[in-house]
């Protein structure tokens, strides 16, 4: 036995919800068994169910939403003499030029870098884990935790547009309206969050095992 035994080797399965170490005896008899955690009542699984399929599906759906989220304007600013449609990128540029560059960097990271990083990271993790690769294991594990930690900050731009819509309503003088891009962007964030939740990081480490 390994110096760092894994749950399967010890006949255990950890509850995804409450963390309790449970016996995996029912799974040994029938791998498809439906077993509830004795402590919290949630369904027990060795790995999150259909992790690859669900994560792929959600990630692809998120990517499809991400294209209109960037191309379609997210916000319209209208004043007496001009109407301006803003995309995510033009919003960042405007903030850089007129407002404060440091905040522009934060918005750039939250709205553009983080979603791209999620697509790239989850895509890499899916491909490498499905190939049972043992390349850069600790780094891949760390990347997954990073994506989990920062994922929801992408909602930043959605909230900015919402607040400006509610605040800037000076009739003909000045108005802000949301445009469909912001809906696509909100959906992208939700779908990428669901995708990273469906991915089971234990799969990263399953490559070297001979069991399963």
């Amino acid at each position: 036995m390994n110096a760092l035994p894994r749950a399967t080797e010890l006949g255990l399965v950890g509850c995804h919800v409450c963390g309790l170490a449970c016996s995996d005896a029912p799974f040994r008899r029938d791998p498809e068994a439906r077993v509830a955690c004795p402590r919290c009542g949630s369904a027990l699984h060795r790995r999150k169910p259909a992790s690859y399929r669900r994560t792929w599906a959600l990630l692809i759906a998120a990517f499809i939403m991400y294209i209109p989220a960037n191309v379609v304007p997210i916000m319209r600013t209208a004043s007496l003499n001009e109407i301006d449609n803003n995309t995510i990128l033009s919003g960042v540029v405007e903030l850089w030029v007129k407002g404060s560059p440091d905040l522009a960097v934060i918005v750039f990271v939250a709205s553009i870098v983080v979603p791209m990083l999620k697509f790239f990271t989850l895509g890499t993790l899916l491909v490498s884990s499905q190939r049972r690769s043992d390349w850069a294991l600790p780094q891949r594990a760390r990347l997954y935790r990073l994506v989990e930690l920062i994922g929801y900050w992408s909602m930043l731009d959605v909230f900015v547009v919402s607040l400006l819509t509610a605040l800037v309503r000076f009739n003909v003088l000045s108005r802000v309206e949301p445009l469909p891009g912001v809906i696509f962007f909100g959906l992208t964030v939700v779908l990428t969050m669901l995708a990273s939740m469906s991915f089971d990081p234990r799969l990263i480490w399953d490559g070297r095992d001979t069991d399963d």
Binding site: V17, G91, A110, G151, Y152, L156, V160, L163, L164, M193
Partner: peptide, 26 residues
Amino acid sequence: MVTLHYIGPWTMSEVFVLGALVAIVK
């Protein structure tokens, strides 16, 4: 306890505060 586990990642008040800050600057 199970509900708390599932809604945990979906509370975003801190993101909204940063959003308000960006809205102020804009």
